[in-house]
């Protein structure tokens, strides 16, 4: 190709990229930049035009706030436990759905239902089912004679984190199942047949063939879920508003920003959230070598 032709190609490429670049600038880069900017100011939400630059004061205020560290702890506990359970459960269900059991087509469709329900609806649904007086869960438990009076699942400070994790597992395990199932279906069945004929026992087939070959799929699924879980807001907020036992970093940022109207400090908290998520993403990508792992 001549240099002139190549130049024309490049121009065309940039032209095609222009609309999407504009959209990204508008909806992602601009708000991010604004947030970043406001985090260095003492602006308040009622009048964002009146402010002065305060340097890193807001960032320092956030990390010296006891509540922030509670939120960080809650977020990490929630992320680690829920993603771990979802991964194990997702893998198990995906393996089950991938084997030739009768009715698996129906099962595959049914597994998607929890994922298709909006978070707020699902959360409210579980809140009612877990209600200490009218909830169906307590009804069943007392019917079975396991408890003598209703357990206040969502009111008890020691149980509520468990409830949040439980509802999240219920809602997002289907996502894990789907991603892992897609990975499973990429593996040629002949590889398992070869191992079977070669007399490799089932547990070794799982450890030495299935798991290593699924690593990229599981890695991507875990990455998605971890990033999602670190930003989690809706589930905990609908269930418990700003209850300190399940307050996540996103809820913390929201409280500073909306409840306390502190645009500057809220933006700083949001920036910390962003940095936390980015750091974890980089660590996961590095540890799992997701950039290099290919299924083949």
């Amino acid at each position: 190709m001549s240099a002139k032709l190549a130049r024309r190609d490049h121009r065309a490429a940039w032209l095609f990229l222009l609309p999407v670049t504009a959209v990204i600038l508008l909806v992602a880069v601009w708000p991010l930049a604004r947030t970043f900017y406001f985090s260095f100011t003492n602006a308040y939400l009622d009048d964002p035009s009146a402010y002065s630059i305060v340097g890193f004061d807001n960032f320092i205020e956030v990390v010296t706030d006891h509540s922030w560290w509670i939120a960080v702890k809650n977020t990490l506990v929630f992320t680690v436990i829920s993603v771990a359970i979802e991964t194990v459960l997702g893998l198990a269900i995906a393996l089950l759905l991938n084997s030739a059991i009768p009715g698996r087509g129906l099962a595959r469709a049914a597994i998607l239902v929890p994922w298709a329900i909006p978070v707020v609806v699902a959360t409210k649904m579980w809140e009612w089912m877990l209600n200490d007086q009218f909830g169906v869960i307590n009804k069943i438990l007392s019917g079975l004679g396991l408890v003598d009076h209703g357990i206040a699942w969502t009111a008890s400070s020691s149980l509520i984190m468990g409830v949040v994790i439980f509802v999240d597992v219920w809602m997002t395990t289907p996502f894990m199942v789907l991603l892992i199932l897609a990975g499973l279906q990429l593996i040629s069945p002949e590889i398992f047949e070869a191992a079977e004929v070669d007399g490799i026992p089932a547990w070794k087939r799982f450890w030495s063939i299935t798991l290593p070959m699924l690593r990229p799929a599981i890695g991507v699924a875990v990455l998605f879920r971890v990033l999602d879980a670190l930003r989690m807001f809706d589930l905990a907020y609908v269930l418990a508003a700003s209850n300190e036992n399940v307050m996540t970093v996103s809820i913390y940022a929201r409280d500073r920003l909306i409840s306390f109207q502190e645009l500057g400090v809220g933006s700083a908290a949001s920036t910390w959230v962003f940095l936390l998520v980015a750091l974890v993403a980089i660590i996961i990508i590095g540890v799992l070598r997701l950039d290099r792992a290919t299924g083949a």
């Binding site: 040629s188 047949e193 070869a194 191992a195 004929v197 063939i209 070959m213 299924g295």
Partner: peptide, 13 residues
Amino acid sequence: VAFVFQSYALYPH
């Protein structure tokens, strides 16, 4: 028995 597949079915990893 040992089976040799058309696709070879080697363990890719």
